[in-house]
Design a protein around this nucleic acid. Structure first.
Lengths: 233, 233
DNA sequence: TCAAAAGTGTTTCTGCTACACCCATGC
DNA sequence: GCATGGGTGTAGCAGAAACACTTTTGA
């Protein structure tokens, strides 16, 4: 038991890091951002951007700061996905990490650039990810799980989509996130009936494909009413 | 950015603690275990049992060890509920905590005894909790939320109940956890139809009340089938 | 003219909700 | 005999699932 010190300062302390699993959607597939590590350990391996907690910031602030420094991104939505503290997870010594998941809009993905710690910075479709450094494969699994929870409970899906989007796009997003097929008619019916989507007069930007799809915008007010009705437990 | 050191050892480190929100059910109400702090800060205040992370253990191991040391309990089910890292959360200096929620069976609750760090150790119905030390009120809110998730997604409710239990008991548990009323008939119908309960020939232990309630046992196999059917997203 | 993509409606089933009466026991 | 607690069934409704055809455009 910890009885030796009168103050916390006397206790052993681990190094504490934060890691970021950033998701984006390119209209077809769900992607995650990886950096190629520029220094050991795991030099040249792909990993999630992250770094050490500083003294004057919370863990969430650290996650945002590291993400900004290492990739230039500033996500709107960011949630904690959990801690990882296996004794041997970092060959340099004992570190624990608190991992965060976040999402960026399609327009932001080109802003991602490799910071000083990284040789490279690249978006990978989640089904084509390379082997990851440390225990980042575990972190990814939990991040995907938390993304699903976020999409079910909160309007996170719309932070992954452009300001206006089509229902087929949205359905492809759901297909990738939940790793299953949805019936096109039921999918459309459900979300159109929910009131969380407002059709938007297409600026005729694209008439490329056959039978141009209708564009929608997220309707926050409608979403609130929908959520109020649904939230029982 | 953290570029100064080659090794993690050179970075600033926070003190890291774990905290435990332990739930139990006494047949009528959901309770949480609090200790009265025996030393500053917040001496004589009620708080969740917890303590500092040691070098040779994971965070979850630390949570279990501290719980054992401070209260004598060894919960079967324990999940992480999140991190708390506000700069001023501990007047002694910068600490971050990783909080865990756990449940113990009714038979175990009498085993809870105050360890060295605590003057007292007591179960409180969740609606009658005293003011808490640190940011433990925030921790409690998130713990209750995670308990709900656990009960919805996993058979956590049955780890809060005795080996055999009645449906009215189970319903009281749900009422407290989800803070809402359930229709008795619908509640029974739902769980009896689920296949996760097996009636057990009452040993005639109690015929106290009018119309002695039927005792059930958790049926793991039935639960698995039920969950398989339900798990869609 | 054919393939690809997207729009649309109906039916069925299942799960959830609401709701009332009877029985046994203890006081 | 009455209050308490616990057992049981039915009918309505809403959300999910299954399912096929038509339209437009580009190759």
């Amino acid at each position: 038991m910890n009885k030796k010190g009168t103050f916390s300062y006397n206790y052993w302390r681990p190094a504490v890091t934060v890691d970021n699993v950033v998701f984006s959607f390119d209209g077809t597939h769900l992607n995650v951002l990886l950096i190629r590590r520029g220094r050991p350990p795991f030099k040249d391996c792909w990993a999630f951007p992250g770094g050490f907690l500083d003294e004057q910031e919370t863990l969430e602030e650290a996650a945002r700061r590291e993400l900004k420094e290492e990739t230039g991104l500033t996500p709107k939505y960011l949630i904690e996905i959990g801690s990882f503290s296996a004794l041997d997870r970092d060959p340099r010594g004992r570190t624990i990490t608190i991992a965060y998941a976040s999402v960026v809009r399609p327009g932001q993905t080109e802003n991602a650039t490799a910071g000083d710690d990284a040789d490279d910075c690249q978006w990978f479709p989640i089904v084509e990810m390379p082997p990851l450094a440390f225990d980042h494969a575990d972190i990814f699994q939990k991040a995907l799980f938390m993304l699903r929870i976020g999409i079910i409970r909160d309007p996170v899906a719309f932070m992954l989509l452009d300001d206006t989007f089509t229902l087929p796009e949205m359905q492809r997003l759901y297909t990738d996130v939940f790793n299953r097929e949805f019936d096109r008619r039921n999918f459309q019916k459900k979300f159109l009936a929910s009131g969380m989507l407002s059709p938007v007069r297409s600026n005729d930007e694209e008439k490329k494909s056959a039978h141009a799809p209708i564009h929608y915008r997220f309707n926050e007010e409608g979403y609130m009413q929908f959520k109020e009705k649904v939230t029982k437990c």
